[in-house]
């Protein structure tokens, strides 16, 4: 310890090391430590808005960008049929181009009762296709299949199709559309208190296997 406190030139073997020099200049060392602290503080103040900017998309509620969209006149949808309808996403922003378009499957169950499904498969989001003859939605990616009411029929999805809220306003059918539906995000705001993930046990599926 005493060696470190020697003044320059005092040590027997000549020039002191940088550490020894610095130890001798305690005021400068202190100022350097203070400058590091100062930069840490400035950096923290700088980082908060940058992180806020970066995480901006996660802050908003997923459904806040949504809104009611009119899909068309009620008589465009014959009872008992399921039809593909396109609309412009209310969540679209500048420069989205074609990606702002959304498609959904509209099923008219009775005169007043509808079901509007997102085209995104509940497994990994690929677009499902409707087959009126076998009354099934089939997914091209991993072979998920759904019945006409959107419930899971077979394949890897762990739940039925995502549904939009709808309302019949006079003569027109409107849905509430927001973000892309996934297992964590709703297609519509304030959907019924239906859990997003409804895992069906593997045993119940294999239990019905033939033979």
């Amino acid at each position: 310890m005493s060696e470190l406190l020697k003044h320059p030139g005092e040590s027997g073997d000549g020039i002191p090391t940088p550490e020894e020099k610095a130890a001798a200049h305690s005021r400068r060392s202190f100022l350097f430590k203070m400058s590091v602290l100062l930069n840490a503080a400035v950096g923290a103040v700088m980082a908060v808005p940058l992180a806020g900017y970066l995480l901006g998309p996660t802050m908003k509620k997923s459904t806040s960008a949504g809104g009611w969209i009119t899909l068309g006149a009620v008589e465009d949808f014959p009872v008992g049929e399921t039809r593909l309808v396109d609309f412009a996403s209310p969540a679209a922003r500048l420069g989205d181009g074609e990606t702002s378009k959304v498609a959904c499957w509209v099923r008219r169950v009775t005169a007043q009762q509808f079901q509007v499904f997102a085209i995104n498969c509940a497994h990994l989001g690929c677009p499902v296709r409707w087959f009126a003859q076998s009354k099934l939605f089939m997914c091209p990616c991993h072979g998920g299949a759904y019945y006409e009411d959107g419930s899971r029929a077979s394949g890897p999805p762990e739940r039925g199709l995502f549904e939009y809220q709808y309302k019949v306003d006079g003569n027109s059918l409107a849905i509430h559309a927001g973000g892309m539906p996934t297992l964590a995000t709703q297609a519509s705001c304030s959907e019924k208190a239906k859990p997003l993930i409804q895992i069906q046990s593997a045993s119940s599926e294999t239990g019905t296997e033939a033979s």
Binding site: T58, R93, T99, V102, L124, G125, G179, T182, T185
Partner: peptide, 29 residues
């Protein structure tokens, strides 16, 4: 969409993660 769907399966932070990856509620600009 597949990437976002995988992110959505992360517990608790699924929804914010989807929006962080997509930069918003939909796939777009």
């Amino acid at each position: 969409g597949i990437g976002a769907s995988i992110c959505s399966r992360v517990p608790i932070i699924g929804a914010p993660l989807v929006h962080l990856v997509l930069g918003g509620p939909i796939i777009g600009a």
